[in-house]
């Protein structure tokens, strides 16, 4: 199951679908099999903070966001993802370029341009998992998380927004190899599906 080059696993989907929980479980599983694995976030937490702040105070434009995501990801690919994979280590990426196509790009011209730019440097994932859930259920889970952690709801966390983005995911996934996961299933059973897929 281990090749010389470490695998790149990507988890995608709207927020509130349990991507981070599954990333941690997969990392533990890989570690138990003697594989070094890293969880990377897209955008990086540094950029996420900047975007959150500039959306509130600076009227940042959606095209500016696309470029910052490209800069952030190209740096992360060069500094972390490629070197780790060359050493045979695995990367579990919470989101990848697909998110920019769903959240930032506003029409087919922008989506095409954005996809082409990311394709210049971002390696194709060995496995892309899409965490599928009805937006209403996602919102319930997000609200529960916010109550638990005390963090406020984000810009993308309203029912209308989640529905719109859920539809957008379906559109871009039509042309992307992926495995769809029913994110309403129990945590352990989702984990089993993921492990079976990556073990091939």
């Amino acid at each position: 199951m281990i090749t010389n080059q470490g695998k790149l696993i990507v988890f995608e989907g709207i927020s509130g679908t349990g991507k981070e929980t599954q990333a941690k479980l997969l990392k533990e599983y890989l570690n138990s099999k003697g594989i070094i694995a890293h969880i990377v976030y897209h955008p990086t937490p540094d950029l996420k903070n900047i975007l959150t702040s500039w959306r509130q105070t600076r009227k940042i434009g959606h095209i500016t966001e696309i470029y910052l995501l490209l800069a952030d990801r190209s740096d992360r690919v060069r500094q972390v993802i490629n070197p780790a994979r060359e050493k045979g280590e695995w990367i579990i990426s919470l989101r990848n370029s697909l998110s920019a196509l769903v959240y930032q790009a506003q029409n087919s011209r922008e989506r095409l341009w954005t996809a082409k730019q990311f394709a210049r440097f971002e390696p194709l994932p060995d496995h892309l998992f899409f965490f599928d859930i009805p937006p209403r259920d996602a919102l319930v889970r997000i609200k529960a998380r916010c109550t638990h952690t005390g963090e406020p709801l984000g810009k993308f966390e309203t029912l209308a927004y989640l529905t719109q983005k859920s539809d957008a995911y379906r559109r871009v996934l039509k042309t992307t190899d992926h495995i769809s996961l029913d994110a309403n299933r129990p945590i352990r059973s989702i984990h089993e599906v993921i492990v079976t897929a990556v073990r091939d």
Binding site: G61, I63, T64, I66, Y67, L68, L70, A71
Partner: peptide, 9 residues
């Protein structure tokens, strides 16, 4: 990309 981000804004 950073330069272009500033330009887009």
């Amino acid at each position: 990309y950073l330069m272009a981000a500033a330009r887009a804004q």
